[in-house]
Write a protein that binds this DNA or RNA. Structure first.
Length: 413
RNA sequence: GUGGCUGUAGCUCAGUUGGUUAGAGCGCGGGUUUGUGGUACCUGAGGUCGUGGGUUCGAUUCCCAUCAGCCACCCCA
């Protein structure tokens, strides 16, 4: 530690930035509660196995992006790279299956050892929504609607588009996957190095390759739509119908895929073109086999995650903080009385600032700096007469108010 | 993890074709006004020119490494 600098890819949230984060979180909490979701808060670290099993041992996130360490007892633990695995684990270990259906919301820091870029940090924050035990498409629709609603409330809805796809059920998906492997294997020599790797690990991912050569091959690839069975088609149709009924616009993007086998049916992302390569603001999907895959009872699930930092970057200025009243002592006797008045105002619910030092001029400047709306000058001959000076800092208008009436008068504002 | 661009005061940036004391604006401190702010004027503080090493009589300037940010890939939130 040659220099006192933050660890790469981490960031201090100073008050201005923290305020934006809290603005997002407050909106999220409010909406989630309104939709009937309850907060769940799981630990930021788990046994490494929890993530290995849920995300798959061959995925990038698990193989090279996790912060994994041995604790003093010799257990392998990992900082959570995403929220769903921990919630699924809590569901299983807490025996929550008897309370289905469950609707959860969560938020907090996540950790991935990636190369940082704008909108991509090593410690970042996510909002998360999960619905467990609801195999019906109505849950998909609700969860997407909640995401759209959040974006709308935050005033960024127009900066983002909804992309939608289906991966089908296990049968459809397996069939398609086999066909795809067959097709791409026939073109293996022409595929990019990355995609040859994907062919082994995650063939669906080749579909959204950005490599030009890959794209030519992908253009001739079999379509997911042709391999969906009736159940899968019906499910997707119901999701689309529901979104249509809500007037929720979307684009079907058949390149939008998910990596793991437990994913089924709906996959969606709210994307933007304003954040460079980091286009996904909200990403989610249905994971009907995750809980089972992790060793729990077969339980349907759907949810999404949303990057707070990315959302904040799309945000216009959030509402300014409330402007305080500045109490300004005049003289030594004024200071004692100013302290008392300050606390009285605070107890009455008035945001109040009392500068710690300086003469009247200094503290008036300080009042300006904290953007006070009113200055109350306490002390001197006014105090002897039982009054204080109340000055409107915008208009410069100053009046005298009886000391015992100040709190009532300012409390009304 | 791969390739590339960048790194000078708290912030935004100028500058040094290698050579004595590195500049501006904003911000910050003090003052004009020891009982009245926001404007104006005066004034002050603040930089081992990201860090380490090399070349050189001499490096902030050239070279290498390293750290960090950014861009693309990758991955995704």
């Amino acid at each position: 530690m040659a220099k006192l600098q933050p660890v790469r890819g981490t960031h201090d949230l100073l008050p201005d930035e923290a305020r934006k984060h809290q603005h997002v979180i407050a909106a999220f909490r409010d909406l989630a509660e309104r939709y009937g979701y309850g907060q769940i808060d799981t630990p930021i670290f788990e046994f490494t196995e929890v993530f290995d099993r849920s995300l798959g041992e061959t995925t990038d996130v698990v193989t090279k992006e996790m912060y994994t360490f041995q604790d003093r007892g010799g257990d392998s633990l990992s900082l959570r790279p995403e929220p769903t695995a921990g919630i699924a684990r809590a569901f299983i270990s807490g025996g929550l299956a008897q309370h289905l259906p469950l609707k959860f919301y969560a938020y907090g820091p996540m950790f991935r050892h990636e190369r940082p870029q704008k909108g991509r940090l090593r410690q970042f924050h996510q909002l998360d929504i999960e619905v467990l035990g609801v195999p019906e498409p109505l849950a998909d629709i609700e969860v997407i609607a909640l995401g759209a609603h959040l974006l709308e409330v935050l005033g960024v809805r127009q900066k983002v588009t909804l992309e939608l796809n289906t991966l089908g059920d296990t049968e459809s998906r397996t069939a398609y996957r086999d066909v795809l492997i067959g097709y791409f294997s026939g073109h293996e020599a022409s595929l990019s190095e990355d995609s040859r790797m994907r062919l082994k690990r995650n063939p669906l991912r080749i579909l959204d390759s950005k490599d030009e050569g890959d794209r030519r091959i992908v253009a001739g690839a079999p379509q997911m739509g042709d391999y969906l069975n009736q159940v899968s088609k019906d499910f997707f149709q119901k999701v689309k119908d529901g979104l249509d009924a809500l007037g929720q616009a979307y684009t079907v993007n058949d390149r939008l895929v998910r990596g793991f086998d437990y994913y089924t049916h709906t996959a969606f992302e709210f994307t933007t073109t304003l954040l460079g390569a980091q286009s996904a603001v909200i990403g989610g999907g249905r994971y009907d086999h995750l809980i089972e895959y992790m060793g729990g009872p077969s339980t349907a699930g759907i949810g999404w995650g949303c990057g707070i930092e990315r959302l904040v970057m799309l945000l216009d200025e959030p509402p300014a903080p409330e402007r305080p009243v500045a109490v300004i002592p005049v003289g030594a006797d004024g200071e004692a009385e100013a302290l008392v008045l300050t606390q009285q105002l605070r107890r009455a619910g008035v945001k109040t600032d009392l500068a710690f030092r300086g003469n009247v001029g200094k503290r008036m400047k300080q009042a300006n700096k904290v953007n006070a709306r009113i200055a109350v000058l306490v002390g001197g001959d006014e105090l002897a007469r039982g009054v204080v000076a109340v000055r409107d800092l915008d208009s410069g208008e100053q009046t005298e108010v009886a000391r015992e009436k100040v709190v009532a008068q300012l409390g009304g504002n």
